[in-house]
Simulated scan of single mutants.
Amino acid sequence: MTNTIHHGCPEASSRKMPGTHASRQQNARRPATLRPAGSRFLGGCGLVAMLVMASSGSSLADDFSALAGPAPAAASFDWSRFYVGGSIGRATAAGGGPRDIAYTYRDHNDPYFNRDETIGNDWFFPQGSSSSGPLVGGVQFGYTQQFGKMVIGAEADFNFLNAKRAYSGAAAEDLLPYPETRPDYNYHVREELAAEDTVKWLGTIRGRVGYTPTERLMAYVTGGAAYAKVKGSGGYNYHEYGFWWGGPGDHDFDRSGGMSQSSNKIQWGWTAGAGLEYALTDAISIRGEYLFTDLGRSSHSVSMASEASDETIAWKSKTRLNILKFGVNYRF
């Protein structure tokens, strides 16, 4: 009988030792952990290129901007345009108003009074002078041309208003009964005299010189010619009463009368002032303006004639106005 001798442990024949065929197959299926040398070189070049592009990005952008030219500047506002607009404000009459008032009367039926009898305002006790400051409203049209910060232009406007100055005076006379022991005569009279100047409308033709401290704000001075329609009104009223006894025509009497007339004239003068104008948009601007207007001295006369008598009231006056207006202009 032949005996088979095994060297080593009984399990040695079935244990898979390192380096066996199965182990080599398993290692062959694992992915390689090392790249070839050429692949590593290409990756490094890509990284360097990205760093170079990032560092030179701003300079490339500057180069493209230089080729494209400078960016267009924002459009600035220019006052060089025609404009039309409207305004509203307040006008106050200044100056002395009516003075040197005289009332002249001629009675054609009375031999004694068939001549001019004049009563001056020195006969009357002045009750006072007054003035009114009504609203003023109108339209304006003009053109301005800008030279740097300076603006030069011209404007014409037309305004409706009702600014007036008035004078009124009164007189009273009482003749006591005469003679005192036998009163045969008693006479009383009350008189009123009035004159008034009213500016009905006003127009101006003016130059404008302005300065623009900011792009849309203009401060300006203005001046030129002024013309206006001035209505002159005058009135005289009387009331006399009493009695007459002791002769032909004995009677009591109580009578009243008077006259009231008006006339119109165009007066020329000058005006000057200043203002501020601000452009809200390229087409719309708002402004505030003060004007002093002097229409000069003038003489007025109103009369009323009939077959029985002629009556006339005459006076002198100087017409001045202080005007403050706020307006809106549309430029085109």
Rank of each mutant, 00 (worst) to 15 (best):
A32L: 03
R35P: 14
A73S: 08
P36W: 02
R99H: 14
P111A: 07
A102T: 09
A68R: 08
H6I: 11
A91L: 11
R24Q: 11
F64Q: 06
L51F: 08
L42C: 06
Y103E: 06
S58M: 14
L34T: 11
V52M: 14
G69A: 12
R90W: 10
T92D: 15
G96W: 00
G46A: 10
A61H: 01
A32H: 11
H6M: 13
C45T: 15
R40I: 11
R90P: 01
P70W: 01
R29P: 02
G85C: 07
A71K: 01
S76Y: 01
I5E: 07
S65C: 05
S87F: 05
R29V: 13
A37G: 02
A71H: 07
C45Y: 10
G38D: 05
P10T: 13
V52A: 15
S80N: 03
Y105R: 06
A49V: 06
A61W: 00
A93S: 14
R24P: 01
A37M: 06
G86C: 03
F41M: 09
N109W: 06
P31V: 15
C9D: 09
H21Q: 08
A66Y: 00
Y105A: 04
W79E: 09
H108T: 12
A12L: 09
T104H: 04
A93K: 13
E11Y: 13
G96Y: 00
R90H: 05
